[in-house]
Design a binder for these strands. Structure first.
Lengths: 213, 213, 213, 213
DNA sequence: AATGAATGAGTATTCATTCAT
DNA sequence: AATGAATGAATACTCATTCAT
């Protein structure tokens, strides 16, 4: 009933152990207006991060660009980190929605290939944003707050199909994610635009890895 | 001749075309004491980053831990970023010194294996430091200031020996570095300590990659 | 007849000559529901002040705990101060209702003793609340808004009976109130729980004071 | 060696139990300049509290009035509360320095009388300041940070001389302090200026209390 | 060369209050 | 009458950097 329930990320959850935040369809603002506000704030954060980098990424600027008061921002996000986390989650969700199509592929190999392609696609769309968010996601403070379960689950499942005999799929999933992130961010940093080539090299690394572990 | 020559990274160099800082003999112990001071400041930065994370990493704290006045710190480093860059360079140098031994190996494969082992070793020694520096190194502001040439050259050469027929060694070098960094940082984040296992998986990814590109 | 009449403390009254608020019949349960709402808000304020202290005492929190919207709170109280004042008045009223029994005592001494006992009782019941409200009541902004007349009248009357020959009863009343408040709050701060002892010391101070003035 | 050592009130000491801060001649800024700065900040705080009340009492305003940057304020005071505490301590020290003269009196009674006179004097000099500081001192957050030991010790000693046979001097000291504070603040609130009269009534209460406990 | 006191722009965050629905 | 989303002025506090001594 109180405004607190709409807060995207509770204070409690920011400290202490993950606590497995209710990954359930988290209570999103009920009234249309609020929902819009939240969305506009997150998108504003994305745009600022994209165009100004970390330097310009402060809550007041985000609120301004969102056309919202700073108070509204804090109505929905208990702090700056919560906003960052929300943005990361939005991006991950979008990636997930695309990547999940991989599961419709017949073969495990095709599924994994789709996954890699999706990763490359995502990177090339908003390269700076993707990169900076990866950076943020690695920050000790934020790690543990981000909803990775679904995404990791997806990788796990795809790898299970692509490498059924692999003995440690969780390790493999973590490694594959790490490889993708490493290569794709590095490509972004270097300004690569040839997603064809990047995709191929990524396949080389990932399939090579799987073939040898 | 003046004190300015001791500045690790000039302001000018932070903007504009970076690369190749003043190629002066670099060693030239202008004054033993100054060299010591610089070293102690850099080590203080390392320790703080390791123990307090980004949160505690500010110039005043670094100076205090180094047992030096904040004024002195700015005598040697024109700014915080310059200090960060100096620390990154120190770490890269140390890694380079170890990794360069790879070149003494007979076979290209052995050389590359040595390289990978060195990367894992480094990560496991000061995991937090290594990770945070990788993060910093990726920051748009710092990229371009860091001396990567030597290190990249080393990778290039080792790859040349390990995969003589590879057509785009520079791309391969960048990719391999990205794979290593991705996997090794990820392992660090997850608190992995079994460097044996990590090394094997790293080899799988890198050799797999090379075999397929 | 309008909603305004329910406002506990008009803005106008906060500035300008306070004293004697609109002497309207004060009771007149305009609407049972409204009265309940007001009561629940005041009690919520009391609970928060008691459990969270000044830190947690903000209008939104009060409304939330009262199970009422923030808008409703402002429907009945023109501002935070008005709410605080209403709470103080409620507590004073309760104290008054108990303390007024003093007037039924035969002797003036007994009456005064009853008064002191009542004061101690009140303090020991909700020590933190009593103390914080005393603090608030002393705030320049609020002084003058609180209904002290009745209470002071009571003290005046009791003192008149206890020390009939006293020449300046109003001064004595103020002093006695000050002594009680000082000692009782101090005891609360120090966590005293032995109300027997406190009562005795209080009597010593007050009767001593009266005997010598 | 670091700036931290000059901080008037360490962070650690603000949380957790009193910890009996080194009541020793606390490390005051060593260089003359710093000492002046600290003094000017505290005096600025006093003036603002006196003239603007709590409303205008914010760190930026204090710094401005002190003719000092906000950064300097925080160089010496880790937070607003620390500044408040420092001001309270300064005032208590001043009061102590005056009140300690009581110990030079021959009789215990005369000593106590001197103490009461000093308390009244102090109140009448800067009434608003004295009152507001008493209010602040009672705030749960600040209590325990203020150096009361000396002052309480003084009261203890004076009472020992004035009422040698009293069995619980510590309780008596606390009560007497409470009585003084209560009456004197109340007088201040009511705008009393006749310190003669106030002094007499104070004596009545205190000596009356002592005679009966 | 060294010191460390001083600076102040910058930023996160709170909370009383308003008002469209 | 009630709701609660929205507001934004106010404020505590940080930290990179400068410069007088």
């Amino acid at each position: 009933m109180g405004a607190d329930d709409q807060r995207i990320l509770g204070e409690a959850s920011l400290r202490g152990h993950p606590k497995h935040k209710p990954t359930r369809p988290r209570r999103v603002p009920l009234q249309g207006r609020a929902e819009e506000t939240v969305a506009s704030i997150i998108e504003a954060a994305a745009q600022i991060l994209e165009k100004e980098g970390f330097a310009g990424f402060n809550t007041n600027a985000v609120a301004r660009r969102a056309g919202v008061s700073i108070g509204s921002l804090y109505q929905y996000f208990p702090g700056k980190d919560a906003l960052t986390v929300a943005l990361i989650n939005r991006e991950n969700k979008r990636f997930y929605d695309d990547a999940a199509i991989a599961l419709t592929r017949r073969s495990g190999r095709a599924a994994l290939e789709y996954l890699l392609a999706a990763a490359v696609r995502r990177q090339l769309q908003r390269p700076m944003l993707a990169r900076l968010l990866d950076l943020e996601e690695a920050r000790p403070t934020l790690r543990g707050e981000v909803e990775k379960d679904e995404l990791e689950g997806l990788f796990h499942e795809v790898l299970r199909r692509a490498a059924p005999k692999h003995e440690r799929l969780d390790v493999a999933a973590a490694d594959v994610i790490a490889i993708i992130r490493g290569m794709v961010d590095s490509a972004g940093e270097r300004g690569e635009t040839d997603l064809q080539s990047l995709e191929e090299r990524l396949r080389a690394a990932v399939f090579g890895y799987l073939a040898r572990t």
